[in-house]
Design a protein around this nucleic acid. Structure first.
Lengths: 199, 199
DNA sequence: GTCGTAGATGAAACTCGGTGTCACGCTAGT
DNA sequence: ACTAGCGTGACACCGAGTTTCATCTACGAC
């Protein structure tokens, strides 16, 4: 049965999420140690103690096992933008919304650093990540539009600002990664936004 | 032979380029008609009258057969930036450099439109394209740095501006594509850059 | 408590993209 | 004419991802 299934489900989902996290963790460590494309799905499955089938059921692709770490960022970012005061200009709202994301980098710098390195150094991962991240743009722009009271789709200006904000994040992360996490991400982000403002 | 091989080579290279162009054209048409992932490499090769091996020698991957159309854009963009007057500010230089790129879209609007659609509607293509395009950023930023008389790597500010300029291009192309090429790309690009300026 | 069902797992076969190897043939320089 | 090099085709091979099917387990209905 099953009438009222949907929504907030139960033990099963929790277990699933836990397994998924575990698989992701195992995969991540193997990738870091051996290199992303030196590890086959069979090896991942073996290392995690499940079958190849199961692994591929949890993560549709090898890439997803790593990139799942970024899932939900778009949602969180958009929510953060919507939570900013109504009168605030787009740039300020975007800049503050990004604090939501970089918080993770402060909580676990070495893990974040390792993830960044793995993703950036693996073309297949980097490509997939860019594709996913590119989709944050419209989500962010939509949030800007809502804030502005619009019901329709985002304007060109809002889209550009959202995309530029994400570039700031990426460039700041570039420099942060290059510095082995020694530089301050907040400072780098501020600097990046300042570069947009300067004529 | 062969002492002075390198540089400006001969018949062979010209023939190679022609074959490559031909293969790309055939592939593009098939992709548009059938959908990128409905077409196998064997079918591409057969349609072009060559063997699978040969096709994959010309284009390392199926994606490359489409994305080769964008090859050289980075170089052209960077050169265009370097060609701008020394005193000009970064934004103006970037904006004008982009005219170099969109020129192609004016020369063959319907072809460009079809390419855009194919790339944007095929996740694998879009991901690879973003990855390639992302590399234009550093090239552009490097050009900005040179213009500024710097010998070292680009600054964070220059990187951000280069990336933002590419976003402007992408967003403008988005809207242009959505309008079936009816809107004016130049106007859209100007609008996009204006959105960056507005506080 | 037993039964029945749905979901999670594992096994295996299959398709396809991409790599590497090798042998053949054409062509261009000697 | 000879031959060295390059483009080509034909395989064989690997690994990712899809699909299908059989099994098992846990949970709800009765």
């Amino acid at each position: 049965m099953t009438g009222a299934a949907r929504a907030s489900s139960t033990t099963r989902d929790i277990a699933r999420a836990a397994v998924r996290a575990e698989l992701g963790q195992v995969a991540f460590e193997l990738f870091c140690r051996e290199g992303f494309d030196k590890v086959t799905v069979d090896e991942l499955a073996a290392a995690a103690g499940v079958s190849r089938s199961t692994f591929l059921r949890y993560f549709g692709t090898k890439e997803d096992a790593v990139l799942a770490a970024f899932d939900g960022h778009d949602r969180r970012l958009a929510d953060a933008v919507r939570a900013r005061p109504a009168g605030e200009d787009d740039w300020t709202a975007l800049r503050h919304a990004l604090d939501t994301v970089i918080e993770r980098y402060h909580r676990d710098p070495s893990g974040a650093l390792a993830t960044m390195r793995l993703v950036r150094d693996t073309p297949a991962l980097w490509a997939r990540h860019l594709e996913k991240q590119h989709r944050w743009g419209p989500a962010l722009a939509g949030a800007l539009a809502e804030r502005a009271g619009s019901t329709g789709p985002a304007t060109l200006a809002q889209s550009v600002r959202a995309a530029a904000a994400l570039d700031c994040l990426n460039v700041a992360l570039d420099h942060w990664t290059a510095s082995d996490g020694r530089l301050d991400l907040v400072v780098l982000l501020d600097e990046a936004f300042a570069a947009l403002a300067a004529r």
